[in-house]
Design a protein around this nucleic acid. Sequence first.
DNA 1: GAGTGGTCTAGACCACGGG
DNA 2: CCGTGGTCTAGACCACTCG
Lengths: 226, 226
Amino acid sequence: MTGWQDIKAEVLARIHARAWPPGSAIPHEAALAQEFGVARATVNRALRSLAQAGWLDRRRKAGTRVALHPVRKATLSIPILRAEVTALGHAYAHRLLSRDLAPAPDAIAAALALPTATMLWHIVALHLADDAPFAAEDRWVNPAAIPGFADADLTRTSANEWLVQHAPFTHGDFTIAAARAGAGPVPIAPCGAALLTVTRTTWDGFRPITWVRLTFAQGHQIRAAL
Amino acid sequence: MTGWQDIKAEVLARIHARAWPPGSAIPHEAALAQEFGVARATVNRALRSLAQAGWLDRRRKAGTRVALHPVRKATLSIPILRAEVTALGHAYAHRLLSRDLAPAPDAIAAALALPTATMLWHIVALHLADDAPFAAEDRWVNPAAIPGFADADLTRTSANEWLVQHAPFTHGDFTIAAARAGAGPVPIAPCGAALLTVTRTTWDGFRPITWVRLTFAQGHQIRAAL
DNA sequence: GAGTGGTCTAGACCACGGG
DNA sequence: CCGTGGTCTAGACCACTCG
C-alpha cells in the first residue's frame, strides 16, 4: 500500500502545506524511512523524483532542502511534423521545393562549426495540413555526416522524417523566436505577419548533422504542461 | 566500476551503432544483468532512464524495444524574469504600471474556468534589462486563491516573484506564440514588429491562481538543449 | 497462463563535501 | 572527520498484458 509514489505525494503535500517551508531542511532519508515504515531505498526513490522535478535540493552531507524557487520545468516534445499535423486531425502532406548542393552561408557554417562555404545539401520544403501551409522548412545537411542522404527520396519521405530515422543524433539545441513573414525562402503568410520559428541544430558526437529552421503558419502555438 | 550509468552508456552505444536497430527487442533485464555481471536492479535503473529519455519503449510482458521515433524531449525551465535578465549579464528592474480590481474579460475567465466577469486583480508591469524594456507583463490574479495578494508590495517585488514565493501551484500550462507589436496593453517595440509571447495559467488543485502573458522585446529567443 | 517489467527490502559500501 | 545521499546486491512478490 505504501509505494514510493505515495511517499512522493505525502512529501509534496507537506511542502505544499508549508509544513516544510521553502529553504528548510527535511528529515534524513533514514528518518523518513522509519516514519513511513519502508526501506530507505523507497524513500530515496521518492525524494530523487521530487528533486528531479525541482521541488527539492539535495546534496551529500548538506541534506535535503525544499527548493526556494521551485524551478518548474516543462518538457517539450519534438515530434515529427507529420505526427503533429495528424494529431491535430488534419491530413498531412509535404512538398519538396528544392534540393541543391550549395556552399554554406556564413551563419549556417558558424552554427554548425564548419569551415566557411563548406558544401552542404540545402533543402527547402513545405509541410501542409489539409492542403494549407503548416510550416516552411529551410534545412542544411552535412553530407560528410550522412553518406546516404544523397540517395534519399525526399519526395516520399520528408527530410524531417528521413533524418529522424536514418541519422541518430547525440545532442542538439533549439531556439524559438518570432519573425515577420517575408524574410524566409518560402512565403507562408501575408507579408508582415508575426510567425513562430523553431531553429534546431543536431550533432552526432562532434560531427554536425543538420541545421533546420521551421517557420510555422500564422497562429501556430507551442503548448506544454507544467 | 560498472554502475548504472555505464550500462546506460553501453546500451545507448549499441542503439546508436544499430546493433539493436529501431523497433527491435533487446534482451530481458535478467539477461543483461547476467551479461554485465550486475544485479537486475542496476540494469533496471539504466533502462528506465533510457526509456524516460525516449530511447526505449518498455511494456510488461512485451519486453523492451528500441523506440522507432526517438521522441526527443527538451526541458524548458521557467525561470523568474529577474534571474533570466541577470543571467544575461544585465541589470534587472521592473515597473508596476497598474493594479486594479476589475471584472475578468471573457477570454481570461474562460481560461481560468471562472464565471464571466469575476472580479480579479489586473496587473500590468514592465520588466527592464539595463533600463531597456525586456518584457511586458499582463496578469490576472484570482483573489479567492491568494488572500494575501491585496497587501503585497508589488513595487519592490514583482508579481512574478511574489507569486512564485507565496503561491505554490500544483500544475499549469503555457503556450508560446508570436504576435505583432501594438496589440498588448504596453507598447514594447515598434508597431508591427514580431514579438514572442508566453502565456501561462497556473492552478492550485482545482483553484485557478493566475493567468499571465509575457510579451518579450524584439529579438528575444527561447533556447533549450536536446 | 506465464513471462516481463515494476517495485520493495535489508543490508552494505562508497563518494562527496560541510564543519 | 564523518554524516548524508548515491548506489549496488540478492532475493522476493506483484501487476500487467501478450499470446
